[in-house]
Design a protein around this nucleic acid. Structure first.
Length: 120
RNA sequence: AGAGUCGGCCGGGCAGUCGCUGCGUCUUUCAGGCGUGGAGGAAAGUCCGGGCUCCAUAGGGCAGGGUGCCAGGUAACCCCUGGGGGGCGCGAGCCCACGGAAAGUGCCACAGAGAAUAGACCGCCUAAGCGCCCACGGGCGCCGGCAAGGGUGAAACGGUGCGGUAAGAGCGCACCGCGCACGGUGGCAACACCGGCGGCACGGCAAACCCCACCCGGAGCAAGACCAAAUAGGGGGGCGAUGGUGCGGCCCGUACCGCCCCCGGGUAGGUCGCUAGAGGUGCGCGGCGACGCGCAUCCCAGAGGAAUGACUGUCCUCGACAAAACCCGGCUUACAGGCCGACUCUCCUA
RNA sequence: UGGGAGAUCGUCUAGUGGCAGGACCGGAGCCUUUGAAGCUCCAGACGUAGGUUCGAAUCCUACUCCCCCAA
């Protein structure tokens, strides 16, 4: 399981509608100008990631895929720090213009916030 | 050297580390290891055409829609190729919804005399006929004639010249233009050329209705098929007036729903459909070409909130537009920069 | 992903080949002691680019944007 620490499989993602609905209902929020990070404790011992990147917030498919990859990569490298939380990244207008590096650095601050919230 | 035209192609490279995913294989399973493959020329817009699936085997008629010079290519096309005609350019070349207005209906505002069986505002004429005057040259009026000139308009019923005339007029003639269901020659044809005939008749609009020729059944992979818990759905046979549904607007036609008898499993979830194909590449042959034929060879994404990335180093010209979702052929639109080939014009030098 | 509608003043709309009209809002004036209401006047638009036509908001083509349906 040591090798799987930095893996990221379907098990680690939110896929069903009800999983998304559960998190959207009264989550903790971290607001940014181009996206919102929602998170909520789950019953598992590991974190799961959901992506809500709409066509309206990020118009082109290429930019949409790029954003999702950066977010997933950041989550993959940091998930060992996070506890049992379901996390959703909700895109807002302007996220497409964000540089990869800037987005990554901001996300790392979010992970730290969630990590420190482990007991709450 | 400069300016330009056409056609084709590329769309950051390399190395390392950590990841995602299809397939194959191995480990006893959960899970992993190894190998291998993994977005585009437009994957886009969804504007056309097909394949595929179900509805009847895709039927008949009306309605509706599409295409529109000719020939060819193709599975098919609103595509492509070659040719004809017209327009633009010095040229290489480029552009064109390019059938029919002597089948019918309709429209052509305003202006203008007149807008489609032409017409007379200004104007030109006074020869013939009638009347009056007369200085016997003629003058005036009536009845009339004309369409050359002006003017209006997007458009006014051939143009120029000569003859002709009272003034004029295709009224006559020459040339040009135009027309012909005329003849000949060339061409599969569109059409071209030559000759003949016709004094000229036939304004424009069919992206107005329409006519002619040809084509088009409807839905769409959320199609459709299979597996599979609960409140009864499906198959076969017989009967059948109305109505409803498949079926898209209608009618015909056809199948089913309805009632009786006999046999027996649908929605939430999963699996298949899902990628080997009108396929790519190379060579040869046929063809001006689009393309076709033959041989060899290759297997080249199949996900399901949706996979190709991230980080580091390095090099350069510092990286545009942009992500498959059943598949294919086109069209259209977006696109940093670069490469190759063919050709045209101008200038300079030899 | 597939299918289907639409775009006219700031807003809601009429116009379907020849004048772009109406209502609300806005501006100015009249009326009133003042305000509201009322009356008069004014300003303001055919999504973009081509084509057909003498002439296009209207017909045709391409593009852009917005909306709806199927989950």
């Amino acid at each position: 399981m040591r090798a799987g620490r930095r893996r990221f499989t379907r098990r680690d993602r939110l896929t069903r509608e009800e999983e998304f609905r559960r998190v959207f209902n009264r989550p903790r929020r971290l607001h940014h100008d181009a996206w919102v990070t929602l998170f909520k404790a789950n019953d598992l011992r590991y974190p799961r990631l959901g992506l809500a990147i709409s066509r309206k917030s990020v118009p082109t498919a290429v930019a949409r895929n790029r954003v999702k990859r950066v977010v997933r990569e950041s989550f993959r490298l940091n998930r060992h720090r996070l506890g049992g939380f379901d996390i959703i990244i909700l895109a807002r207008r302007g996220l497409a213009r964000r540089e990869n590096r800037a987005l990554r650095e901001a996300l790392e601050r979010d992970w730290t916030t969630i990590e420190q919230c482990k007991d709450c």
